[in-house]
Structures are given as C-alpha cells and as structure tokens.
C-alpha cells in the first residue's frame, strides 16, 4: 500500500542571499556562498525547492580566546595565536565560510589587521562580529567595514539596542549585516524592518534568532526558528531572511561540553561528549530551518557536513511500505 504524502503549496520563499565577492565583483574571494531560496520546510524535497544546502561556518578569533574550552584550544593548537594561520586551518577543516570574532582588547589597528590577514590567508567569504559590547562593536566594526570594502562581509552583531552604526557602515561599504534578536518571532521581524528602514536592502540582511544549546533551551530556539520559517513560507516578507545561528558558541558554553572533571562516569569520554553536544545542537537547528550554522570544533564540522549531505541527497518520491 502506498500512502499519499500531502503536499503544501507555500506562497512564500526564503530570500536568496550571497556572501562574499570574487575579484569580478570587487572582492578577493575565490567563490561566493549563497544561502536561502527555499520554498518548503527543511529537506521536504518532494514539496518544494531547496536550492542551496545549509552552510557550515567555523568561528575563529582575532586573538587567543580566554574563555574557550581547553579541548578546542588543544585541537586547534598553535594557530589560535595567529588569525591568518587559524583561517587557513579552518578552511582546510572544511568550513564553507569563516566567522572572525574580535576581542574587547583589540584596538582598531588590531581589528583591521586581523581582518586583512584572514582575507589574505583564505578564500572563504567572511563574517566579522564585534566583541559584543555596543561601544566597542561600533568602534571596531566601522573601520573593519572600510578595510573590507568590496568583500561583501557580514558585519555583526546588530541588536535592537545597537544596530544603527553597524548598518550605516554596511551601507557605506556595501556589506551585509547579521540581525540578532533574543528568541522571539516578533522581535526578529521588527529588527529586520528597522534595519531595512535605514535603507539596507533585504538582500543584505541575515536573521539571527539566537538559540540555546542542547539541554539549555534549544526547544525554545528551535520553535522560534520553525515559526519564523513558517511565517516566511506563508508569505510574510520581513521574516524571509535566511537564518544564521551559532550553535558552536552555545554548545561549548554547556557544562556537558565544557567540563571534564568531577562529572558522573556515565557521561563518558569528555571529548566525544563535547563534539556530540555541538553536533546535535547544530543538526537540530538545521532541521528547524537554519541556513548557516557556525561551529567551533573541526570534527563537528565533518559530522554536520555529513548530515547535511545525507539530508540533501534527494530521495525522489518517498515510498512508504505498510508493515
């Protein structure tokens, strides 16, 4: 017996957005990366188009991070002291794009030189986030935007309390921005409207609804993302931005990933557990509609890529066989 699969005809489509610019387009990247374009929920290939697979990014930092797990620092080893070497290593580890996080300790020169070095060391499109403190973000991101003119960087983080300067910098130098709101459908939509209102085209805005790690509120993040995607497919234009989330950062904050000592023996091997934590966080979010996940561990990248490959392999007409 075959079961007829119900097919929904969605009126909306996720916006296609391209990151990075090649030499022809005024940048120096060897290729660009395009995300979005879906006309159906994640991986329902029988229902609509999924023109671009979800993209995996690796987070690197402008200087040795002091709050990262020793497991990560060990894995990446010496390169964490050198953004250029780290960028190269991340590219080799299979990243589609890079996210460079600047530090509170960076001066303007530190920040622009880190961006310059990373751009020179690798061919991938680049996302640059400030350290996450409004004043410092603005101080660093504006010169970074100038330094990276032509590259179509993604600049972040735009938040409700602090987005105008970053958006203005993106306008001045033709970059994209990352619009981040704390796990709320309406806030996500509102910030997109506000950023777009300043004159930045929707083709230059990624939506970052934020998330929690596995066991730390991932359900909440998952369901907000799912609802955003449903709204997008239902035709709500201001929710049709591709979604970027940072499961790497979230998962590595979780105790299960961070702590190796004094935990129950049944938790098993620390390294394996931490990678599982990051992998499961990322793959769950991909299932809820993430177009771009940023990770921290190279092994996770491999595993997540594998999952994506499997999910993207079109199964053709599904056939259900009655037991």
């Amino acid at each position: 017996m075959t079961v007829e699969i119900p097919v929904e005809k969605w009126p909306g489509q996720v916006r296609e957005i391209t990151l990075g610019a090649t030499a022809d387009e005024g940048g120096t990247r060897s290729h660009t990366v395009t995300v979005g374009g879906e006309t159906t929920l994640p991986f329902l290939h029988f229902e609509g188009e999924i023109p671009h697979p979800p993209v995996v990014g690796i987070e690197i930092a402008s200087r040795r991070p002091d709050d990262w797990s020793p497991l990560l620092l060990e894995t990446w080893s010496d390169v964490v002291d050198d953004p250029a070497a780290w960028a190269k290593a991340a590219e080799e580890a299979g990243a589609d794009i890079l996210l460079l996080t600047l530090s509170l300790e960076d001066s303007v020169d530190d920040a622009t030189s880190a961006v310059r070095q990373v751009l020179e060391a690798c061919d991938l499109p680049l996302i640059v986030f400030g350290p996450g403190q409004a004043d410092k973000d603005n101080e660093l991101i504006v010169p970074v935007a100038e330094e990276g003119a032509g590259e179509r960087l993604v600049l972040g983080v735009c938040e409700e309390k602090n987005y105008r300067t970053i958006v203005a910098a993106a306008l001045a130098h033709d970059h994209l921005v990352n619009s981040r709101t704390p796990m709320d459908v309406n806030l996500a939509k509102q910030l997109i409207i506000l950023i777009h209102d300043m004159g930045l085209p929707l083709e230059q805005i990624l939506m970052d609804p934020t998330t929690g790690a596995l066991g730390y509120g991932i359900e909440y993040g998952y369901s907000v993302m799912e609802r955003l995607r449903l709204a997008a497919l239902q035709g709500d234009s201001m929710t049709q931005q591709p979604m970027l989330v940072t499961p790497g950062e979230e998962a590595w904050k979780a105790k299960e990933a961070k702590v190796g000592d004094d935990v129950p023996a049944e938790w098993g091997d620390w390294g394996e557990r931490a990678i599982n934590w990051e992998t499961l966080t990322a793959t769950s979010l991909i299932q809820s509609g993430a177009d771009l996940v940023v990770l921290r561990h190279p092994e996770t990248v491999q595993r997540v890529q594998k999952t994506i490959d499997a999910l993207m392999a079109e199964a053709g007409e599904p056939e259900l066989v009655a037991a």
């Binding site: 100038e146 203005a168 306008l171 004159g199």
Partner: peptide
C-alpha cells in the same frame, strides 16, 4: 563623507 555619513545615518 563616509565617516560623517555613518554618524548621520546612525543618528549620532
């Protein structure tokens, strides 16, 4: 222009 422009656009 860009430096002031950013300040005009972001409202400072």
């Amino acid at each position: 222009l860009r430096s002031w422009g950013i300040q005009l656009v972001d409202g400072r």
